[in-house]
Design a protein around this nucleic acid. Structure first.
Lengths: 226, 226
DNA sequence: ACCTGAACACCGTTCAAGT
DNA sequence: ACCTGAACACCGTTCAAGT
């Protein structure tokens, strides 16, 4: 009997035009979400697409261009709340939560954004919406700009913080090591930390709830009694 | 005439014990601050130390261990304000500014922290100090823990945001490209963004000032009238 | 045009060897 | 013990070639 199907097929030539930018970006996002930024490799990407490594280069100039396109696509999927509720404060909260949710659901996208330098590809509609709401809430032009930047910084920082924490905790035995380190702390030198360690842990257990509390505080501080 | 000194010296064997953990960390930080995280390479590090690549491995298990040690050392250099001024709110501000300054002065350290998963090596004394001040300001245990996390998240987010922005702007022509992109934006679709673009730019020009404004807002929101 | 493998210049790290 | 170069398994990307 002749071997009609080789055991280790050297992969047949991929059919013409079966590859395109969208399929590549889908695969990239899947790779990033499932296996993290360090698994996002040109070779892994091509393999997941069932194609030779260099096939991808027919559709993108290189890895950087793919990274930017991934970031762009993800930023565009941020869901905005319906407009015109008459409560700019509540709407503002929802917009921020939308941004936070995206980064929480796609942690490696956040990593990607921090790695690649900034480009003009920000989430335009999100920015516009936030600025509009801040003005509507009674802030001056400069105050609105300041408030917007502050809210974005807090949101990005929170998502990043939680991502890092989650990555560490799902790792083996890190949780125990941290716990041991805290227990070993001299309570006369670090009284507040030792005393509040349980609260510190508990509060970070639910990242989204913690984010909302901080968000409320920041919005309160920014809008005040207005 | 015989060649006594070869043109390209193959580097003499480094004298015994001339290398140690501290010298390695110094070189690593210099490398990170001067040439960015992507230039932080085992080979570059060894070359800067005038030593074979593998010599470093006699003092650290690998690159990850060096990264962690660098982060640890930098976190320990955060300057805390003198205690007992009787104004916890002002002291809290100073502590946060100290953290912000460290990350602004060592941007690649921040990148390092976001890359490496979290460990128990946080800035213990900073955390303890902040928690103490928050309690002193009248917050409950849980509120203090929440406030501390929120402040750290905002601080990290701000530093990261500015770092990214700075890296992009010092690059060639990115500034013009962003400006052009904004000018091309349809002002009927993004009225607030188009209108407030100058303020958005201006406000981010001075990252530290912007950080302080947001910090004041967050502290106000967290501590309220207390 | 789209896709291919071989090859190049990097990277972190293992290993056996020198002193 | 401390330091060395060669070698290994990766990486992104260039290139000449196939269809």
């Amino acid at each position: 009997m002749s071997v009609t199907q080789p055991v280790r097929s050297p992969r047949r030539r991929a059919p013409r035009n079966s590859l395109n930018a969208d399929r590549i970006l889908d695969a990239a996002i899947r790779l990033l979400d499932c296996h993290g930024a360090e698994a996002f490799t040109m070779r892994a990407l091509a393999q997941q697409l069932g194609v030779g490594t260099m096939a991808v280069y027919s559709h993108f100039r290189g890895k950087d261009e793919i990274s930017d396109a991934v970031a762009q696509r993800l930023l565009d999927t941020i869901e905005l709340p319906p407009a015109g509720s008459g409560d700019p404060r509540a709407e503002l909260r929802e917009v921020c939560l939308g941004v936070y949710r995206l980064f929480s659901e796609h942690p490696s996208a956040l990593q990607l954004l921090t790695l690649r330098p900034m480009r003009g590809d920000d989430a335009i509609s999100v920015i516009d919406r936030m600025l509009g709401l801040l003005c509507e809430a009674g802030l001056s032009r400069t105050e609105a700009a300041r408030a917007h930047v502050a809210l974005m910084q807090y949101t990005v920082g929170s998502a990043l913080w939680n991502t890092r924490r989650a990555r560490a905790l799902c790792d083996d035995g890190v949780r125990d090591r941290v716990r041991a380190k805290i227990d070993a702390l001299p309570s006369d030198r670090y009284p507040s930390l030792v005393s509040l360690a349980p609260e510190l842990m508990r509060v970070q257990e639910n990242g989204a709830a913690q984010y909302e509390r901080g968000l409320d505080a920041m919005v309160e501080g920014l809008l005040g009694g207005r």
